[in-house]
Computed example of a mutant assay.
Amino acid sequence: MKVAMCDPSLFTGRYDDSLCAAMAGEGAEVALLGRPMRATDAIVPRGYRYEPRFFRRSEALRRRMGEGRAFRLLKAAEYGLSCALGDLAPLAGADVAHMQWLPLAPADRIMLRRLKGRTALVHTVHNADAYHADAGVQGRGYRGLLDMFDALIVHGGTTREALERQGVDPKRIHVIPHPPMRLAPAGAEDLAQVPDAILPRLLFFGTIRPYKGVDLLLEACLSLWRAGHRFELALAGKPFMDIAPLIERVRAAGFGERLITDLAFLTEQRLDAHMAKADILAFPYRHIDSSGAFLSALHHGKAMVTSDAGMFADLPEGVAARTPAGNAPALAQALLLLVESAAIRQALGARARTYGDSMGNWKDMALATIAIYRGVTGK
Rank of each mutant, 00 (worst) to 15 (best):
M1T: 05
K2Q: 11
K2D: 09
V3G: 01
V3Y: 01
A4D: 12
M5H: 11
F11R: 06
G13C: 06
D16S: 14
D17S: 13
L19Q: 01
L19D: 03
A22C: 09
E29V: 14
D41H: 10
G47E: 04
G47V: 12
F54T: 05
F55G: 03
S58P: 08
E59Y: 12
A60W: 08
L61P: 02
R62K: 15
R62S: 11
R63F: 12
R64N: 07
R69N: 08
L73Q: 14
L74M: 13
A77S: 14
Y79D: 00
G80R: 03
C83F: 04
C83L: 07
L88N: 08
A92I: 05
V96Q: 00
Q100N: 12
P103N: 02
P103H: 06
P106I: 07
A107D: 01
R109P: 07
I110N: 01
M111E: 05
M111H: 05
R114V: 05
L115K: 01
T119G: 02
V122H: 01
T124G: 06
N127G: 02
H132Y: 15
H132M: 07
A133Q: 13
A133N: 15
G136K: 14
L145K: 05
M148W: 07
D150M: 06
A151I: 05
A151E: 03
L152P: 07
L152V: 07
H155N: 09
H155S: 08
G156T: 10
G156L: 09
G156W: 06
G156I: 10
E161P: 02
E164D: 04
D169P: 04
K171R: 15
R172Y: 06
P177Q: 05
P179C: 05
P180E: 07
L183K: 08
A186P: 00
A192P: 09
Q193Y: 03
Q193S: 15
D196P: 01
D196M: 03
D196A: 13
P200Y: 03
P200C: 07
R201T: 10
T207W: 01
G213T: 04
D215E: 15
L216R: 03
L218P: 01
E219V: 14
L224E: 04
F231G: 01
A234K: 00
L235K: 08
A236P: 10
F240I: 02
M241W: 10
L246R: 07
L246P: 01
I247D: 00
E248T: 15
R249V: 06
V250Y: 08
V250Q: 01
F255I: 11
G256L: 10
E257W: 11
R270F: 02
L271E: 00
H274I: 02
A276H: 04
D279I: 12
L281M: 03
P284M: 04
P284Y: 05
Y285S: 03
D289F: 06
S290Q: 14
S291W: 13
F294G: 02
L298E: 09
G301V: 11
M304K: 06
L315W: 15
P316S: 12
P316Q: 12
V319H: 07
T323I: 05
P324W: 00
P324T: 09
A325F: 06
A332G: 02
A332T: 04
Q333P: 00
L338T: 05
I344E: 11
G349N: 07
A350H: 13
R353C: 07
S358M: 11
N361E: 09
N361M: 01
N361A: 09
A366M: 03
A368S: 13
I370N: 03
A371T: 14
A371L: 12
I372P: 03
K379G: 15
